[in-house]
Design a binder for these strands. Structure first.
Length: 371
DNA sequence: AAAATCTCCAACCGCACCCGT
DNA sequence: CACGGGTGCGGTTGGAGATTT
């Protein structure tokens, strides 16, 4: 038995607020202050749910709210805080005077998420997609050195990988991922009707960096298990942790924003002051005190030094995403076998597939429906 | 010019937590 | 301790306006 509704929804007005209704709320609050919102509609002469009145006040009518566009500095802060604490919009909004959690959430969903995607960065995990792909190649300790004959009927996509389902990903996550991959491949190339192996990746040019990010981002964002408010989804998190053989479900990752951004030549030249770098690392490192303290405690207790202008310089430069394949060095050196070129990426995938094929020939059953 | 599609954001929903009784 | 009302929060939706076809 669920909680009873806060009001009789059939008898209260819903939808957009009129100026007259706004005026009534404002008049009521100016006389009585906020609080006990369930009584506000009656006392203010409104045919609205009290909850709706509270929302209207907190998200729109409060006099301290800003209604103008987000400044670049605010944008930077949102991105950094989102990386540190995830979609804790209320905590993020507390760092942005005049902004509500709803404002921040909407701005993230409509602008910032897409911006990161265009830069080649997964907005869920704030990691470069190239790393995600390379880490996927390393999933569950698969060797990078395949020495097998080519096969056109290999099997990674043909049957649930027991290693996935038993230790890293749930069957639902795998199914969701595969389905998403299939849908997006078809969107890119409708002639691909039913890919049964990783070989299908070779059917389209991998160098199209506009398309690549979609795979993992959509897979992570569309899976039920990945829609939680945690800072990283279990789905994607598992991939990253495989890289360093860390505990399977653990936020421990070797990647940091500063490493990634420093790998960009333009950014690195602007970001050479040690003090700034130190502050930036502290702000961004998920293992460090400031960010994690925010996740655990009230954000207001944290002292974050924003060095966001450096970050903005990268965003505005616009080369991080498209230039990723060329510019990765220190941060992604161990991923070079996959990310250095399109062909090596595809070859890497195929190698993994072939190796898996040889290890688990029973996965070849073509009748298996991987949905 | 009209229809279709996309973008954006205000508002809603349901759950969880807090706190007084 | 249990219960219930108030509130906070994150995810989702609906629709107005903008843009594209």
């Amino acid at each position: 038995m669920g909680r009873p509704p806060c009001c009789d929804k059939s008898n209260v007005k819903r939808g957009l607020w009129t100026p007259e209704e706004d005026a009534k709320i404002l008049a009521y609050v100016s006389n009585h202050g906020t609080g006990n919102w369930t009584l506000v509609p009656k006392k203010a002469g409104l045919n609205r749910c009290g909850k709706s009145c509270r929302l209207r006040w907190t998200n729109y009518l409060r006099p301290d709210l800003k209604h103008d566009r987000f400044a670049p500095e605010e944008e930077e802060l949102i991105i950094k805080l989102h990386e540190a604490i995830g979609s804790r919009w209320s905590l993020i909004a507390k760092r942005l005077p005049g902004r509500t959690d709803n404002d921040v959430k909407n701005y993230w969903n409509t602008k910032l998420r897409k911006k990161l995607q265009k830069m080649g960065i997964d907005p869920v995990t704030h990691k470069p997609f190239s790393q995600i792909f390379s880490d996927f190649g390393n999933i569950s300790g698969i060797s990078n050195t395949g020495n097998l004959n080519k096969s056109s009927n290999t099997s990674l996509m043909s049957e649930p990988d027991h290693r996935f389902s038993s230790s890293i990903l749930t069957a639902t996550e795998i199914s969701c991922f595969k389905k998403t991959m299939h849908e997006q491949v078809q969107e890119y190339n409708p002639t691909v009707t039913h890919p049964t192996s990783w070989d299908f990746l070779a059917q389209f040019p991998i160098h199209d960096t506009e398309k690549l990010p979609l795979f993992f981002n959509e897979a992570s964002s569309s899976c039920p298990s990945s829609s939680s408010s945690s800072s990283t989804s279990t789905f994607t998190q598992s991939y990253y942790c495989q890289k360093s053989q860390a505990p399977l479900i653990s936020p421990t990752c070797t990647f940091t924003w500063s490493e990634f951004l420093l790998s960009d030549p333009v950014f690195s030249t602007e970001f050479h002051h040690q003090e700034e770098r130190s502050n930036f690392d502290e702000m961004l490192s998920p293992t460090n005190s400031s960010a994690m303290a925010m996740a655990q405690n009230d954000l207001s207790s944290c002292n974050i030094t924003s060095t966001g202008s450096n970050y903005r310089s990268v965003c505005d430069h616009g080369t991080v995403g498209n230039g990723l394949e060329e510019n990765n060095n220190a941060a992604a050196a161990d991923h070079a076998a996959y990310s250095s070129s399109a062909s090596s990426f595809v070859d890497g995938i195929l190698d993994k597939d072939r190796e898996l094929h040889s290890r688990f020939p029973q996965l070849l059953d073509p009748s298996f429906d991987y949905y």
